[in-house]
Nucleic acid binder design. Structure first.
Lengths: 233, 233
DNA sequence: CTGCTGCATATGTATATACATATTATTAGA
DNA sequence: TCTAATAATATGTATATACATATGCAGCAG
């Protein structure tokens, strides 16, 4: 078989990848079972298992007990996007970060928001709007609704100094959430805050985070024109 | 100690998560080493290792040899997005899929494209524009450049029948790539193809895929208004 | 022919053990 | 005091073994 010994799961993974890329194993093909591969590669089954499991995690293989392992027919590529804290994102790009609180009020949220956050019907929530700037230029509008249960009235004054985006990360734990990407046209408000023209296309991220089902916060990030977010496969 | 035995790496992971969420272990904190945790949980070190390694993969823990394991200070949340084949995405939403080839030509690509794809300066490439429809309504424009090396002239006629998006997945292997999300305003062309108004905000995905550095294809997907892509944390 | 049962099989996982490797902490030397 | 060698330590990984679990498939009963 192979003369070089495959003595690490990474080398096994590479060999398997090579066989997929060379189309020796084509999408949909059933590949040999772990025991056989282990023998061929001259390593333990656990090592092969680690390699194949990792490739399955990345979506390149489909594995099922008894049915075996096959090359994914639809390499449903999982792109992992890193959602950074905004201040850090701006700093990483080499710009000077700035922050300005626009408004902070405790009011009844609109129904779209209270639906998403599954609030009681008539519960007030903290509404915060602020702006993050890069080298003084508007970078993104943060329009956030906060479950008041998670932030005391006293703590709210902190948002004069640092953004909810940043504060929440280190002070409120969460277990799950959703993220949505979309596009919108700048209305009068957005155009004003981002100093751009009305009607310009803006990139939008909506994010809701929860702690054991209970909504903590729901935020809409409206980015200045030409913003783009990149990730690698 | 704990009375229940932690006899699976999942249960260990849950316990660790619980401690993070309860803020018993706060962001930045150093947590006990694997051996100690294994003893406390009454399981093998390998089991703890599996759990912690998985949490580190998800970005919740930072691990370094000798330095130990600590709770991530900036839970750089990795959102994993599933990028499906368009036909499948439309079918999954319960709509009837349709496909129409708009144009297919072998021409010199514009410099933005040849830069990204790192083509030779004067190499022609296959340019394909097509539309995917859901229940007959335009869903997304696929504007693609193909490295002709990977698709023979004979094969190109296949794109009268099925979209490059779909064909490539099962016929051309790739090893890496980038994805970029952004927003754009509908110009005359886009408005025409998507039957929307000029100036409407559209969601855009740019994707380039390579096989060992060599560019295979670069595509811009321009979605109809109100498209949004969702993912969970 | 249909549906249920049980067996065979491939992956999933836990365990103990051993060694590898990275990195910090310490100590000896200039 | 600063620097370079060295020890100590936490994670990373390979191994053999054993058992768990899901599930395709064959065989059986209706």
């Amino acid at each position: 078989m192979t003369d070089t010994p495959f003595n690490s799961w990474q080398s096994v993974q590479e060999e398997v990848l090579a066989r997929i890329h060379s189309r020796q194993w084509k999408p949909g093909d059933l590949i040999p079972n772990e025991a056989d591969l282990a023998q061929e590669f001259g390593c333990a089954r656990a090592t092969v298992n680690r390699a194949l499991q990792n490739l399955a995690d990345e979506g390149l293989l489909d594995r099922r007990r008894k049915a075996g392992t096959r090359v994914a027919t639809h390499p449903v590529r999982k792109a992992t996007m890193y959602i950074p804290v905004i201040r850090q994102e701006i700093a990483d790009k080499g710009h000077e970060y700035g922050y300005e609180l626009i408004c902070s009020e405790r009011v009844l949220p609109p129904t779209e928001v209270s639906n998403i956050m599954e609030f009681g019907r008539r519960a007030r929530a903290q509404h915060i709007v602020c702006i993050h700037t890069a080298d003084g230029r508007p970078y993104v509008i943060e329009d956030r609704w906060l479950n008041p249960k998670w932030v005391s009235a006293k703590e709210i004054s902190i948002f004069n100094e640092i953004s909810p985006n940043e504060w929440l990360v280190t002070h409120v734990p969460f277990t799950e959430g959703e993220i949505m990407f979309s596009a919108m046209s700048a209305g009068k408000t957005e155009a004003g805050l981002l100093s751009c023209k009305e009607g310009e296309a803006l990139f939008v991220i909506d994010r809701t985070t929860r702690n054991k089902q209970e909504a903590i916060t729901s935020v809409r990030l409206i980015f200045a024109p030409d913003y783009q977010i990149e990730t690698v496969l």
